[in-house]
């Protein structure tokens, strides 16, 4: 596996949404992932899964950029944050792991360093069997738009400055600065 995360024009993008579809808004990342799969045809692979587990490191390592989609508690707006390959506090377990942990595993095992973001979608209701709440449904639409802007055919370097605006509700300034660098 080659290293580096900058060659995203060649290696595909992975969109990975996860959650429990039986628990209301917990499924929001998966719903967003499927919406992206329906919209985007180029250079994007989409997976919607129940939970993140260690073997996903291998898949992640094969991609130039990775966009994670998950439910975000105690938030009112969709949040987009850049992720780095750093081990988290769940390195001792394996039943489910965090995105930055998977990035660390991809980096350590495969010397692969995809550019990665986490899009957190506000949620409200985790009732068993409940449909997505209105809050989560609105979040899906915003998250899909945010994700679309991160995809390589849209977010290729020439149009990156569009995200430079301080008015952007989706990308905190620090995130843009990091990407610009």
């Amino acid at each position: 596996m080659s290293s580096g995360g900058t060659d995203y024009t060649v290696r595909p993008t992975l969109v990975l949404g996860w959650g429990n579809e039986w628990r209301g808004d917990d499924a929001v990342g998966r719903v967003a992932a499927r919406a992206i799969a329906a919209e985007c045809r180029t250079q994007v692979e989409v997976a919607d899964i129940h939970q993140l587990t260690p073997e996903w490191a291998c898949t992640i390592a094969a991609h130039g950029r990775v966009i994670f989609l998950d439910a975000l508690r105690q938030a009112t707006e969709v949040q987009v944050s850049r992720l780095t390959a750093s081990p988290t506090d769940n390195a001792h377990t394996a039943h489910r792991v965090a995105p930055d942990y998977l990035l660390a595993l991809a980096a350590t095992c495969y010397n692969a360093h995809p550019v990665a973001w986490l899009i957190g979608i506000p949620v409200q209701d985790f009732t068993m069997g409940a449909p997505l709440s209105s809050v989560a449904q609105r979040g899906v639409a915003v998250a899909v738009a945010a994700c679309r802007r991160l995809l390589p055919d849209v977010v290729a370097p020439p149009i990156v400055p569009e995200f430079a605006s301080d008015e952007s509700p989706l990308l905190p300034q620090s995130t843009f600065a990091e990407r610009s660098a």
């Binding site: 260690p54 073997e55 490191a57 291998c58 081990p87 390195a91 001792h92 394996a94 942990y101 660390a104 595993l105 350590t108 095992c109 495969y110």
Partner: peptide, 19 residues
């Protein structure tokens, strides 16, 4: 002393486990 430490010391073993 976890899988990341193992991967740093023995990457092939960690990769085999993932495979």
């Amino acid at each position: 002393r976890h899988i990341l430490g193992l991967a740093a010391a023995h990457p092939e073993i960690a990769k085999n486990g993932i495979w």
